[in-house]
């Protein structure tokens, strides 16, 4: 898809995010805004998926797992804007009986979601399982994941990382939201990841990196990663991002990890984000 079009979609997704979290005074805007460009490019330019006829088994479709489930607002918006469910349903986010639970779930059968997430560190394992099933089924599709950088402190991530390279799982493209922030502060201060690129390399992965807010670069790196699948190695893309990207008073601060803007702050945010597809 044309870069201008993708930028327009991303702007609307950002509006959706801040409106969703502000409406219920809860949720996680910071990471959601930081991953908006990536998820927009993934769903509108890269993935082979069928929004109109969602199936749990995803035969011959690419699959995406959101391992850092707390950034559900961006995923819900991108799913709705892709056609998985009506955009109006975004207005039910986090409200009683909604399909748009605080963290993603399959419990209420929201189209687009194949696994609950929220308790961190699990999505890579889930994805590897689907990768192996796709191989058994002779299905050439790709499985994508997204992880927070703080999430990489969970040990299960590294169990899965070890498994993937040892077993040549080469139909996976994982991405890291490398914004350097987590709830208690900078990742570097809370528990440093050290040299993240070298860590993944040491675990046997092909490592790519990208500016997570440059749509052209995102398109190029995801296309390149796709050409690298099927070569016996798992692929990870370290995506440099800013928490809160697109809203000036949120950018780069961990303080907006899990805090919603109030009415006045929402207005300021919306003035910085063009309405392109119509608000829900």
């Amino acid at each position: 898809m044309d870069t201008i079009e993708l930028q327009k979609i991303a702007s609307q997704v950002r509006r959706d995010i801040v409106r969703m979290v502000s409406a219920v005074n809860s949720g996680h805007p910071g990471g959601s805004l930081g991953c908006t460009d990536f998820l927009t490019v993934l769903y509108f330019d890269q993935m082979n998926h069928n929004a109109a006829n969602f199936t749990m088994n995803a035969i011959n479709e690419d699959v995406f797992y959101l391992s850092n489930g707390h950034i559900s607002p961006v995923w819900y918006s991108v799913l709705a804007r892709s056609g998985y469910f009506p955009a109006a349903e975004l207005g039910t986010f986090r409200k009683l009986s909604t399909r748009l639970q605080g963290h993603p779930s399959t419990d209420k059968n929201l189209p687009g979601i194949r696994m609950a997430s929220g308790s961190l560190g699990q999505g890579l394992s889930n994805a590897l399982g689907t990768c192996q099933t796709k191989k058994l089924n002779g299905d050439k599709s790709i499985v994508y994941t997204l992880h927070g950088d703080g999430e990489l402190q969970e040990g299960q991530i590294w169990e899965a990382a070890m498994y993937a390279s040892a077993n040549k799982v080469d139909n996976i493209i994982s991405t890291i939201d490398y914004n350097g922030r987590q709830i208690d502060g900078d990742v570097e201060d809370v528990l440093s990841l050290g040299n993240l690129s070298q860590k993944w390399q040491a675990f046997g992965w092909e490592v790519l990196s990208v500016d997570g807010h440059n749509i052209d670069e995102l398109k190029a790196i995801l296309s390149k990663a796709r050409t690298m699948t099927g070569n016996g190695k798992p692929i990870v893309i370290i995506m440099k991002t800013e928490m809160g990207q697109g809203v000036d008073y949120m950018v780069g601060s961990h303080k907006w990890h899990g805090v919603a803007p109030n009415a006045q702050q929402l207005e300021i945010a919306l003035n910085q984000l063009e309405e392109t597809l119509g608000d829900y």
Binding site: M56, N57, A58, I59, V63, Y65, R114, M115, G121, Q122, G123, L124, S125, N126, A127, L128, G129, T130, C131, Q132, T133, K134, L136, N137, D139, G155, Q156, E159, A160, Y163
Partner: peptide
């Protein structure tokens, strides 16, 4: 932990 997570993921695809 990885085994249980993988098992869950393997159901996607039948």
């Amino acid at each position: 932990a990885n085994m249980i997570g993988m098992a869950a993921g393997m159901t996607v695809g039948g």
